[in-house]
Amino acid sequence: MATRKIKYINIDADKCSGCRLCESICSASHADPPYSLVNPGRSRIRVFRDEDNDVYIPVLAGPYTDVECLGRNTVMVKGKEYGECSFCRASCPSRDLFREPETDIPLKCDTCESINSEPLCVKWCLSKCLTFEEVEEEVEEETPAAA
């Protein structure tokens, strides 16, 4: 048995203020050159919001998928129904979310590894809705790490 470090970004949606600073800093920090622009459309985290129902949920970009789901479910939050896609993390052909605007390249949260930084959205989220945690977990040596 070996251990490896797993990075977690935990979301406490009750603390989300909907400020979207996370979107801004993510898109800015991953821009080329760094910080030369802000565009939530390039962010690897997006905040779903519904002001009328007081729902604010940050969604971190997850794996890419080349086909959309076959079945669709619905999600109830505070008694109101939302489409499942609302909170889905996938970069998926059914929508524009989590794909670079011009190039269509899928976006995925890399916990800011590609820019050699601590997760910046976490750092800039002063409401502490996002928190970061690194956990040592045991892995079986012969199993390749899941993506």
Partner: peptide
């Protein structure tokens, strides 16, 4: 008071969401 809410890119979140008796906010 259910939530502190903010405008774009603001960490001060001076707006507060309250739930009305009829369930609206």
């Amino acid at each position: 008071r259910e939530r502190e809410v903010a405008c774009a890119n603001c960490s001060l979140r001076c707006k507060h969401a309250y739930r009305n008796t009829d369930g609206t906010y």
